[in-house]
């Protein structure tokens, strides 16, 4: 018992180490949240371009660029992307959290693009035709009719993607950022104990369970129209 109290004391209280954990959690959530927003935005745009390019030959070049983007991002580890971004492309940017947000956002965008494309494809073609036949243009039909149905179909896959994204941000410590994982590791090197690492694991677990709960609530809301 004394051991445990001693351990908790060393991990959290001594030198105000809980503050390091708090700022680590804050950074992790901050990076994951804004990266997810960038990811959805990029992913949707790329998916719509890829689908529109099927009936519009003018988009063929930009479609090829999107294809290259997805291939490169999915074909290289996110840690390597982060290192390249921080030490090469954004070498003059001092805000390492910002670089991490951009990196993880661009990375997530490639995965969201594939998920969203499959989701839009899964909506019956008749829905687009019905929208067009009422005089709505392609964009409006896409926005009001196809995307809401696609979103419902891809929600489970999208949830998975954001859970992965949250956990992948654990490599942010490769560049000068103190995220949750890095905070735990720093404290471990000071206390020579494994308690900080277990604490880090529990923090991730709680966040992921939280995300899953939100996802379930949204799914239940959206399935209202399925009840027969």
């Amino acid at each position: 018992m004394d051991n445990l109290i001693n351990s908790i004391n060393k991990t959290f209280i001594v030198d105000g180490r809980y503050k390091l954990f708090l700022s680590g959690i804050k950074n992790t959530i901050f990076i994951a949240f804004f990266a997810a927003i960038i990811g959805i935005t990029i992913g949707l745009i790329v998916a719509i371009i890829k689908i529109s390019a099927k009936n519009n030959k003018k988009l063929i070049l930009i479609d090829k660029i999107c294809g290259l983007y997805v291939t490169v991002i999915r074909g290289t580890p996110v840690v390597v992307q982060l290192l390249i971004m921080y030490f090469a492309i954004f070498v003059n940017v001092n805000n390492s959290v910002l670089v991490a947000i951009i990196t993880f956002g661009i990375n997530s965008g490639a995965y969201v693009a594939e998920i969203a494309r499959a989701g839009i494809d899964s909506v019956d073609k008749g829905q687009m035709e019905a929208g067009l036949s009422l005089g709505l243009n392609r964009n409006k039909t896409m926005f009001f009719i196809v995307l809401p149905q696609a979103f419902k179909n891809i929600l489970p896959a999208l949830g998975n993607e954001f859970i992965s994204l949250l956990k992948e941000t654990a490599v942010a410590g490769y560049v000068p950022i103190i995220d949750l994982t890095k905070a735990g590791d720093i404290i471990r090197t000071r206390t020579y104990e494994s308690t900080p690492l277990y604490f880090v694991a529990i923090c991730y677990l709680i966040m992921v369970v939280g995300l899953t709960t939100v996802q379930k609530i949204v799914e239940r809301r959206l399935s209202e129209s399925d009840r027969n």
């Binding site: 008749g126 829905q127 959206l222």
Partner: peptide, 9 residues
């Protein structure tokens, strides 16, 4: 249309 194509959502 043959398949109605009502908007299910």
């Amino acid at each position: 249309f043959q398949n109605f194509n009502l908007f299910p959502h």
